[in-house]
Amino acid sequence: MIRRPMSDNPPSSPDFTGTGLACRRGERLVFAGLDFAVPASGALVLVGPNGSGKSSLLRVMAGLTPPEAGRLAWDGVALKEDPQAHRARLHFIGHSDALKPVLSAAEMLGFWAGMRGGGDVAAALARFGLSAAAPFPCRYLSAGQRRRLALARLVASPAPLWLLDEPTTGLDTEATAQLMAAIAAHRRDGGCVVLSTHAPLDLPGAASLSLADFRPRRGLAA
């Protein structure tokens, strides 16, 4: 692992690690014995066929699902010791966009940013090409626009760890480029990104983790 020599927020260079992780969904053991490490400014790309546990791993990383076994740590401190601090440092964008049909795009983003202590909503909307859509209720947005609005949460309020579950689904090439630019800027500032994807993405220096390698042998029985 290469640490960036200069970072904007030293002295604690964030370092997100997991060791010996296993995850159970219902009766099925999805993966076991999984280790990962994401250094400051690092990116980790999760790949694998459908059902191999990419989303499950991201949910475990976010603290939504407790792992069946293993340990997650940020800077060497186990997440279990301070789940609230972990929630404060992460952005998780899952499959659903978490938008209310009756609230406008600006209100929606303002709410999510405000819940994290506030941020520059107008700039975040502009960054994902949503300035013109800002006053419209979310029910009038297209699927791609809704996705952009969900992703705009990433830049509206800063957090060092981004967990993105197939973030490019439904995005056009322009929005994908905007997302890649946002990720690059985030990593320049010392942030970490973990994302799952099926499409090849332009992420320089990103590590790759294939979930298929951690499939337990008896896991498919149930």
């Binding site: 976010a62 603290g63 939504l64 609230q84 929630r87 404060a88 992460l90 998780f92 899952g94 659903s96 978490a98 999510w112 819940m115 994290r116 202590g117």
Partner: peptide, 8 residues
């Protein structure tokens, strides 16, 4: 899900 991941 998003609410449950907030600091509050």
């Amino acid at each position: 899900e998003a609410l449950s991941l907030l600091p509050l």
